[in-house]
Amino acid sequence: MPRSTPPWEVERKTIAKTEDETDPKYGHKPEERPAEEYVRYGVINLDKPAGPTSHEVAAWVKRILNIKQVGHGGTLEA
């Protein structure tokens, strides 16, 4: 059976179809979002400590940052 390629080893190229410009009046480059928006559209690459569950860790982040909603990408057991 052929080895399947992990998603992180897949190489992709960008191909242009047509050209256009974007109006600086609307939106922001992701790294230039105003602070409050930057947080709301943010992700933390967290190094989970051993012991607490993924849910507990996510809840701590929620409390530290004083925000309403957090989620996590894939449970890592306690």
Binding site: R40, K48, P49, V57, G71, H72
Partner: peptide
Amino acid sequence: MTGVLPITLEESRKVVQ
């Protein structure tokens, strides 16, 4: 168990999928 656990904040939870 330790390591990479991406935490999505507020609106970004929609990218968990």
